[in-house]
C-alpha cells in the first residue's frame, strides 16, 4: 500500500509519509482544543483539571440552576431566532432583486450588503453604542436584533446569490408566462429549488447572532445580556468551570449539526 502512487507523477504513499504526519499534527491542532472542553466539563473539582480526578455533573447543574445563565441563554436564543427570520427574509429578497439585473446600480447594492462583513466588529460596536444611546435602544432586544440582522445579512445575500447563480432563471419566466404572478412563481417554482442555499444562509444568520460577542458587549447590557457576553466576562474575570459545561453543550450542538448535515447531504444532491 505504501508503494502505491498517489499522483500521476509517481510519488508513492511511502515518500509522502512526512506529509501525512505533518497534516495529522495540524488536524489535531485544529480539533483537540474544540473537543477537550467536553471531558473537562465533567470534572468534580472546583478547578479545571485534565484528566478530571472525579466525575460529576456539578457544572451542568451550576449552569442550569443559575437564573442569570438561563436568562442569558434565553436572550441569545430569542435574538438569534428573530435575527434568523428577519435576516433570511430581507437577505433573500435583496439577493433576488440584485440577481435580476447586472447594472452598476445592482453591483453597488451588492457591495453595500458586503459592508457589514468588512467593517471591524469593534467599530460596529462602538458606533452602535453611540447611536443606540441616542435612540434609547441600548440594553433592548430590539437593538440587539437590529444589530445582529445587519451583521447577518451579508451571509444570506452571499448564500442565496450563490444558489441563484446556478438556478435556471427561465423557469421563473415560464411560470410567469403560464399565468403565475411574480410572487407565486417565486414561492412555488424558484424557492423550492434554492431552498438549500436559503437554509444555509439562515444557519449562518443564526450562528452570527448566537456567537456574536463584541457588539453584544457594548449594547446588550442588563436583563438583555447575551450568553456570549456573559461567557466573555466570566472568562475574563474568573475562569469558572461553568463555562466549560456551556462550551461542551455548544460543541455538542456543532457536532450534531455537522452530523445532520452529513446525513442529509447525499439526499439533497440526488
Amino acid at each position: 500500500m505504501l508503494s502505491d502512487p498517489v499522483t500521476p507523477t509517481q510519488i508513492t504513499r511511502g515518500q509522502r509519509l512526512w506529509l501525512y504526519a505533518l497534516v495529522t499534527l495540524i488536524a489535531l491542532f485544529l480539533v483537540v482544543p474544540c473537543l477537550l472542553v467536553i471531558p473537562m466539563s465533567f470534572s468534580g473539582g472546583t478547578y479545571l483539571e485534565f484528566p478530571p480526578k472525579s466525575l460529576s455533573l456539578r457544572w451542568y447543574q451550576a449552569f442550569l440552576g443559575s437564573p442569570e445563565w438561563r436568562q442569558a441563554t434565553l436572550t441569545s436564543l430569542k435574538s438569534a431566532g428573530l435575527t434568523t427570520v428577519i435576516a433570511t427574509v430581507l437577505g433573500t429578497a435583496a439577493a433576488w432583486g440584485i440577481h435580476q439585473r447586472s447594472t452598476v446600480f445592482s453591483q453597488g447594492l451588492r457591495g453595500l450588503f458586503m459592508l457589514p462583513m468588512l467593517v471591524p466588529l469593534i467599530l460596529v460596536a462602538i458606533g452602535l453604542f453611540f447611536l443606540f444611546s441616542r435612540l434609547g435602544l441600548n440594553g433592548t432586544l430590539t437593538g440587539l436584533v437590529l444589530a445582529h440582522t445587519m451583521l447577518a445579512i451579508p451571509f444570506v445575500v452571499i448564500a442565496v446569490g450563490n444558489g441563484l447563480s446556478s438556478y435556471d432563471m427561465s423557469q421563473h419566466m415560464v411560470a410567469q408566462s403560464l399565468g403565475a404572478n411574480g410572487l407565486v412563481a417565486f414561492f412555488t417554482v424558484t424557492l423550492p429549488q434554492i431552498r438549500i442555499s436559503v437554509l444555509s444562509g439562515a444557519v449562518f444568520a443564526f450562528i452570527t447572532s448566537f456567537d456574536e460577542v463584541v457588539v453584544g458587549l457594548f449594547i446588550a447590557s442588563g436583563s438583555n445580556e447575551t450568553l456570549a457576553r456573559r461567557m466573555f466576562s466570566n472568562i475574563r474575570d474568573q475562569v469558572d468551570p461553568t463555562v466549560a459545561a456551556i462550551s461542551s453543550l455548544l460543541v455538542g450542538m456543532v457536532v450534531i449539526g455537522m452530523a445532520v448535515f452529513m446525513i442529509l447531504q447525499p439526499k439533497a444532491k440526488r
Binding site: L90, G91, A93, A94, W96, G97, I98, Q100, R101, F105, S106, L109, L112, F113, L115, P116, V119, L123, V124, I126, G127, L128, F130, L131, L146, A147, T149, M150, I153, V157
Partner: peptide, 23 residues
Amino acid sequence: FALLSLPGVIVVVLVLVLPMAWL
C-alpha cells in the same frame, strides 16, 4: 427589483453606515 432590496438597504444604512459616518 430595486424595491426588493430596499428593506435590507435601510437596515444596513441605518445600523451600519449612519453610525460609521458619525464616528
